Simulated assay, not measured.
Amino acid sequence: MKRKFMLLIIGLSTLALVACSQIGVDANTISVGELTEREDAILSTASDKSFVFDFNVDDEYKEVAIWIEKYEAGNLVNDSLGYMTTEAEQSGSIIFTLSEDVNDVNNIFNIGVSTEESLTSAHVPDEKSNDVENMSSEWGSIPEKVALDNGEVVLANISYSDNENGMHSLTTDFYEGAAGHMNELEQYDVVYLLKAEFSK
């Protein structure tokens, strides 16, 4: 587990360098990160599922917060798994990964914000509920790029269901306005949402 965590830290540092080269590109937006083959290999080695997002903001934004929300059957059961804040610089990356622990008891999330000046990260265990290891899973993220409007944005989801009829991905409408589409979470037994908020 320590080796995987070290690989993840190395990958985060590499991603920070890539993000720093994007200063001035589409201010006040966050987009799905474009990874090199090497970065993708590092994340695949260190985690079961991974997401990387690049952000570019102007000087008005002072802070970024990221956290995970957990839902069961559409009901919020934890609104701040791994909640953390850090200073918002002009550009950087947000990283979200999932690994299972060796005893198959917890989901292990790693979340982090990487910029030219700093790396802030958290290792977040969450006890598996509702027998998720025997369920089907699906995951998704924002469509390519979204504007930051000083409010919460859902960046990614990892969802589990034992529905024998299969699962559907969360819609683009969900990512563009989650508050009006929370009923979509009812189709899953367990959902983890990665959220971010940039504050001025």
Score class of each variant (00 low, 15 high):
Thr45Arg: 14
Met84Lys: 08
Asn150Phe: 13
Val154Arg: 02
Leu17His: 01
Lys4Leu: 07
Asn28His: 07
Asn163Tyr: 03
Met1His: 05
Tyr160Ala: 06
Met182Trp: 05
Ala147Thr: 15
Asn134Ser: 09
Asn28Thr: 10
Leu35Pro: 13
Asn106Met: 03
Ser80Trp: 02
Gly24Asp: 11
Tyr192Phe: 15
Leu155Cys: 03
Val57Met: 14
Gln187Asn: 04
Cys20Met: 13
Glu133Asn: 08
Glu164Cys: 00
Ile142Thr: 04
Ile94Asp: 02
Val32Pro: 00
Asp162Ala: 13
Ala147Gly: 10
Gln22Leu: 09
Glu39Val: 10
Arg38Lys: 14
Asp126His: 09
Ala196Ile: 07
Ile10Met: 12
Ser93Gln: 12
Glu72Ile: 15
Ala147Trp: 01
Ile111Glu: 10
Asp162Pro: 01
Asn75Gln: 11
Ile158Glu: 12
Leu7Asp: 13
Glu197Trp: 00
Ser141Lys: 12
Gln90Tyr: 04
Ile111His: 05
Asp162Arg: 08
Gln90Leu: 11
Val102Asp: 09
Ser121Gln: 13
Ser141Arg: 14
Ser99Ile: 02
Leu81Ile: 12
Asp149Glu: 14
Ala46Gly: 06
Ser118Asp: 15
Asp173Phe: 02
Asn28Cys: 06
Asp48Trp: 10
Phe109Gly: 07
Val25His: 06
Glu164Asn: 03
Ser80Ile: 00
Ser118Ala: 06
Val64Tyr: 01
Leu81Thr: 01
Lys195His: 14
Val64Lys: 05
Ser136Leu: 13
Asn56Tyr: 04
Ala179Gly: 01
Val132Cys: 02
Ile30Ala: 03
Ser31His: 08
Tyr61Arg: 12
Thr36Arg: 02
Glu72His: 05
Gly140Asn: 08
Ile94Trp: 02
Ser169Leu: 08
Glu39Tyr: 04
